[in-house]
């Protein structure tokens, strides 16, 4: 084991896969000479050269499509979006081309491609640069959607994503890039589609992913002091959704709260709650609850922004609600 940042873990996964498989290459805005707008691709141009680490113009629709075309020929593109906000330019290629081609071709043509970059809120960058696209992509059959929290998962899941035969949307978080964690030495491949119980507990299940996990862990620590033993689940994969792990947890705790940065309406939390209600109704001792970002475009002013974000205090409060206790 060694301690590295999430940023380094992502870089290492890309570098190791590029060493292992010459069909893997990276393309995107500022990925080569600038080494990534968030410095994620540090050292890659130097090691792999400009044919495999490709700076693109600011043309997301175009280069996402170029990536899909290259994948049709068996290359394994890693397409970096400077942030997922800008992938809105390219969402047609991701959904209509990448996600559906295997199906439309009756299985003749698969697309091994990874779309990755920072997703979610960032500090005070306002409505057009601060939003969570988890639910958007989790909606789409044909995509796998991954959102790691810690460095080990960032590396293990990205490695798995690059090796996966199908398109993977890999949602990183700018506010996690600098966080460090223990990562196994050498090759580390995690399994896509599996949630993880980060903290076992008896009284209530708190489920989140990506940066939400840190909010939820803080909330669990606070709840522990107040006598509530929360189980924390890191979903890691938004599609497929690891229903078995969720349902198993609810069978033990009988209560569940989901936490996400995105908007409440048709969010990932809605899917979690629907799953639990439909498949574990009898196990529930309280209505499942969601904590989410406010139902509003992200405001700029810091004190308004704080009102639009899910906070660990809110998670604590809602956990008390479903436990019928008061904090």
């Amino acid at each position: 084991m060694r301690e590295i940042s999430v940023r380094e873990a992502i870089r290492d996964a890309m570098a190791e896969e590029m060493r292992r498989d010459e069909s893997v290459f990276l393309m995107g805005e500022e990925v080569a000479e600038y080494e990534g707008a968030y410095k994620v691709s540090q050292g890659l141009l130097k090691e792999f050269g400009p044919e495999r680490v490709v700076d693109t113009p600011i043309t997301e629709a175009g280069f996402a499509g170029v990536g899909v075309g290259a994948a049709m020929m068996g290359l394994r593109p890693i397409v970096e979006f400077m942030t997922w906000n800008f992938a809105m330019q390219a969402i047609d290629q991701i959904v209509n081309s990448a996600a559906k081609t295997r199906y439309m071709s009756g299985g003749l043509l698969g697309l091994p491609i990874v779309f990755r970059g920072p997703n979610g809120v960032a500090s005070q960058v306002a409505a057009q640069h601060s939003q969570d696209y988890g639910a958007w992509y989790a909606h789409v059959p044909g995509l796998k959607v991954v959102a790691p929290f810690d460095a080990a998962d960032a590396k293990g899941l990205l490695t798995a994503a690059i090796r996966d035969p199908d398109p993977v949307v890999f949602l990183e978080h700018e506010l996690l890039y600098g966080e460090s964690g223990q990562v196994p030495d050498g090759e580390h491949v995690a399994e896509l589609g599996r949630a993880r119980v980060v903290r076992p507990g008896r009284d209530v299940t708190l489920v989140s992913w990506s940066r939400g996990v840190s909010l939820v862990l803080d909330a669990a620590a606070e709840l522990a002091e107040q006598g509530i033993d929360a189980e924390v689940i890191d979903l890691r994969s938004l599609r497929p959704l690891d229903r078995a792990t969720l349902l198993g947890s609810v069978q033990r705790t009988h209560r569940i709260v989901s936490v996400e940065e995105g908007w409440p309406s048709c969010g990932v939390g809605a899917e979690i709650v629907a799953t639990v209600v439909a498949e574990a109704f009898d196990a529930l001792d309280a209505p499942p609850q969601r904590v989410s970002g406010a139902d509003v475009p992200m405001p700029y002013a810091a004190h308004l922004e704080a009102l639009a974000l899910p906070l660990s205090e809110t998670v604590v409060r809602v956990a008390h609600e479903v436990c019928y206790t008061d904090g």
């Binding site: 005070q124 960058v125 306002a126 409505a127 057009q128 640069h129 475009p297 405001p299 700029y300 002013a301 308004l304």
Partner: peptide
């Protein structure tokens, strides 16, 4: 101008 909702870019 945007009541603090837009910021520098909006």
């Amino acid at each position: 101008v945007s009541q603090g909702k837009g910021g520098s870019m909006h």
